[in-house]
């Protein structure tokens, strides 16, 4: 993990913005990097409000309720609807979704 910058209003560094953009395969112009840094810092500042609560004695909770995930029977209930699924595709080739060439 990258260290957070010290300044309170800059909760996120340009470095971190670029790292997250790289993971998301996004290409950002320098001006976009700067504005995203500001926006993301603001969001983190908002979430920071939660730190005002004393949670050090509360176990981390990812889910409420402990009934467990429901299970379904192993049955095929969906039927081929390729046309509907492809309807929103920006590009297609036959029944395939067509995407920019993936370079290995």
């Amino acid at each position: 993990m990258l260290e957070l910058p010290a300044m309170a209003q800059e909760k996120i560094s340009l470095e971190q913005v670029r790292h997250v953009a790289r993971l998301a395969r996004l290409e950002l112009a320098p001006a976009e990097e700067e504005s995203l840094r500001a926006e993301m810092s603001e969001m983190l500042g908002y979430v920071d409000k939660l730190n005002e609560l004393a949670t050090d004695k509360v176990a981390p909770t990812a889910q409420v309720g402990e009934s467990g995930t429901p299970l379904r029977e192993d049955a095929v209930t969906n039927h081929a609807a390729a046309e509907a699924m492809l309807a929103n595709a920006p590009a297609r080739d036959g029944f395939f979704f067509k995407v920019p060439k993936i370079i290995e």
Partner: peptide, 12 residues
């Protein structure tokens, strides 16, 4: 993914 000449094709 299937890699074609100028694009990649995806089957889900």
């Amino acid at each position: 993914n299937i890699h074609a000449e100028s694009a990649s094709l995806v089957d889900f």
